[in-house]
């Protein structure tokens, strides 16, 4: 199995290839929002690093969102057309899940139970999900299981949920006559560019010492983490035809929202009355 993965949902585009031995090779843009111009070169670089010819690819995977609408589309279209032309299946990976996977080792090492990727969706909105980090006592085996749905949240609402999850953990800790910090470390691990946007809101909403932010090197989307999920999914046969690879915008276009709500401008909807 040789899987190409494309990640364009955040600021820096990247491409990565995972081979049958599980080795990952990647290339990431140094320019912000250079997805369209730079993607084919990143893909080419990742393939060359891996020593794999494009004709040897068995799957094309894409991070399908949420994230920048434009970015999502560039990645998804690139993956769809490459898969169509190379006659291989696609694999869809959630950007949030890939972000959670990217920080899992770090989160476990910091004693975090909940991994929370948050993508800035502006005006207090965020695309987010909450995963529980599961690991064996020797930390050898680590996995993520979803505990809160991936969707668009108001940051305040998300933090309210997390607060009560932290409160439960604290109750559990005090039942064992321990502090939460001693029992777990930083219970909640945030990652994603939502940190950059909502850091202050998070800091004023959650008790100090109960959460931690991912370092910048791990904070943003990277195709490497897309490949790892894609590999598991491909091995499980969870693949798609190129036409089934769809963006996960998590939000209707504004005009669609207004059309649905019946608030689309009358001027636009009806002929102007003179």
């Amino acid at each position: 199995m040789n899987i190409l993965a494309i990640e364009t949902t955040g600021k820096y585009g990247s491409a990565a290839v995972i081979n049958g031995a599980g080795e990952v090779f990647s290339a990431i843009s140094t320019e912000e929002m250079n997805h369209l111009k730079g993607m084919m070169l990143l893909i080419d670089e990742a393939l060359r690093e891996a020593g794999i010819d494009k004709s040897e690819l068995t799957h094309v995977a894409a991070s399908v969102g949420p994230g920048s609408f434009t970015g999502i589309r560039i990645g998804v279209v690139t993956a769809r057309v490459m898969a169509q032309m190379l006659d291989v299946p696609c694999v869809a990976v959630s950007s949030l899940e890939a972000m959670a996977g990217r920080v899992l080792d770090d989160a476990v090492s910091k004693g975090s139970l909940y991994v929370v990727p948050i993508i800035n969706a502006r005006r207090h909105q965020t695309y987010a999900g909450v995963w529980e980090a599961e690991f064996t006592s020797d930390y050898e085996h680590k996995a993520l299981s979803p505990v809160m749905e991936e969707k668009q949240y108001m940051i305040e609402d998300l933090l309210k949920e997390l607060s009560s999850m932290i409160a439960k953990l604290e109750a559990e800790a005090s039942g064992r006559a321990q502090s939460l910090k001693a029992m777990l470390g930083n219970a909640v691990y945030f990652t994603g560019d939502g940190i950059d946007a909502y850091k202050e809101i998070i800091e004023s909403s959650l008790p100090e010492g109960t959460y931690v932010f991912a370092d910048e090197e791990l904070r943003y989307q990277h195709a490497e983490s897309v490949t790892e999920i894609a590999l598991k999914r491909a091995m499980a046969g969870k693949v798609l035809g190129y036409n089934e690879l769809m963006p996960e915008y998590m939000r209707l276009a504004e005009a669609e929202q207004r059309l649905k709500a019946g608030t689309l401008s009358e001027r636009i909807r009806k002929p102007v009355q003179i």
């Binding site: 369209l36 993607m39 084919m40 893909i43 080419d44 494009k54 609408f69 434009t70 589309r73 560039i74 279209v77 690139t78 993956a79 769809r80 057309v81 490459m82 169509q84 032309m85 190379l86």
Partner: peptide, 19 residues
């Protein structure tokens, strides 16, 4: 329209590269 253009451009590049 930039968002519309980039679909064609990304598709064309992917095909050009793949083939």
């Amino acid at each position: 329209l930039v968002g519309a253009l980039l679909i064609g451009v990304a598709a064309a590049k992917a095909m050009a590269y793949a083939c």
